[in-house]
C-alpha cells in the first residue's frame, strides 16, 4: 500500500485540474501508488490573497471531484489573512470534502497567527502540513525551518503536525524535530540522497516518517527510491509508504464517512 502525502497535479500536464488529475492517477497506477493527498492549484503565490486562496482550493476541489476514491485534498491557507483562512477552512474542510491543511511560505510557523488555524484543524483532527526548508543559501522571508515548526508544535503538544520536506537539509531537520514527538516528517521534494531514510529511521523511528513525492515538480520514481531503495527493514518501509499516513488520517476520514 502506497499513499502519497504530498502531490500537486499542476506539474503533471493538462490544461485543467481535471486533466492534470487524470495524469496523476495514470502515473500513480504505473508506479503502484494507491492514494494521493493533493494541494495547491496551478498558481504558486507565496502570499496568496483571499481570492487567490479560494482559486487554489476551487481548482483542487475540481481535481478531486471524480477521484474521491483515489485522492484526498488539503486546504491551502495563509495566516496573514487569518479570518479569511478560517472561513476557507470551514468551506473546504468543515463543510467540504477536504481533510487537511497546507501551510506554505506566507508566514513562519513560529508565528502565533497560526494558532487559531491549528486549533480549528485539531478540533476536526484534520491533517496539518507545514512546508519547511533549511537552505544553505538562506530561506525566503516567510519560509519556516524545522525549528520554526518545533516552536509551533510545542505550543500544540497534543496535535500531530507534519514537518514538510524534513527541512530539505535533512541532517539538520531530523535533529531539529527529534525531541518533539508530536512532529512527523515528510520525505518529499529533495534529491534522492542515499542515507536520508536510514538516518530518519534511526533517530525518529519509522512511525514518525511519512512518504510523499512533491510530484509533479519531482519525479515519482526519484522519491519512491528514497524508501524502496533504502536499507531499512521492510516493516519500516510499509509504515513510511502508507501505514503511518493512513493511521494519521483515519479519524477525520471516519468522521467524514469516507471509506478506505
Amino acid at each position: 500500500m502506497i499513499w502519497d502525502l504530498h502531490c500537486h497535479f499542476s506539474g503533471f500536464g493538462g490544461r485543467t485540474p481535471e486533466e492534470g488529475m487524470a495524469e496523476v492517477i495514470r502515473l500513480g497506477d504505473r508506479m503502484g501508488i494507491e492514494r494521493f493527498c493533493i494541494y495547491l492549484g496551478f498558481g504558486r503565490e507565496e502570499n496568496p490573497s483571499p481570492a487567490q486562496m479560494r482559486t487554489h482550493n476551487d481548482e483542487v476541489l475540481r481535481a478531486l471531484d471524480h477521484w474521491r476514491h483515489r485522492a484526498w485534498a488539503f486546504v491551502y491557507l495563509n495566516p496573514n489573512y487569518l479570518d479569511e483562512s478560517l472561513r476557507e477552512f470551514d468551506r473546504c474542510v468543515k463543510d467540504g470534502p477536504m481533510v487537511g491543511v497546507k501551510l506554505w511560505v506566507a508566514q513562519k510557523a513560529s508565528g502565533r497567527a497560526l494558532d487559531p488555524i491549528i486549533e480549528r484543524a485539531a478540533a476536526m483532527q484534520a491533517v496539518i502540513f507545514q512546508h519547511t526548508w533549511w537552505k544553505t543559501g538562506g530561506n525566503l522571508s516567510g519560509e519556516s525551518t524545522p525549528l520554526d515548526v518545533v516552536e509551533l508544535a510545542k505550543r500544540h503538544p497534543k496535535t500531530p503536525i507534519i514537518c514538510g520536506h524534513t527541512g530539505g537539509n535533512w541532517e539538520l531537520g531530523i535533529r531539529a524535530v527529534r525531541g518533539q514527538t508530536n512532529l512527523s516528517v515528510d520525505l518529499a521534494g529533495s534529491d534522492p540522497t542515499n542515507g536520508f531514510v536510514e538516518m530518519a529511521v534511526r533517530e525518529l523511528g519509522a512511525e514518525r516518517i511519512i512518504w510523499g513525492s512533491d510530484a509533479g515538480g519531482r519525479s515519482l520514481g526519484s522519491q519512491l527510491a528514497k524508501v524502496q531503495g533504502s536499507t531499512v527493514p521492510e516493516a519500516a518501509k510499509k509504515l513510511m509508504l502508507g501505514e503511518n499516513l493512513k493511521r494519521m488520517m483515519m479519524p477525520i476520514l471516519t468522521a467524514k464517512g469516507f471509506r478506505v
Partner: peptide
C-alpha cells in the same frame, strides 16, 4: 550516481517514463 543517490532513482524514472 550511486551511492550518493539511491540506485533505484534512475531505474524508477525509466519505469515512470514508460
Amino acid at each position: 550516481y550511486y551511492p550518493f543517490f539511491l540506485w533505484e532513482s534512475a531505474a524508477l524514472k525509466m519505469k515512470e517514463a514508460g
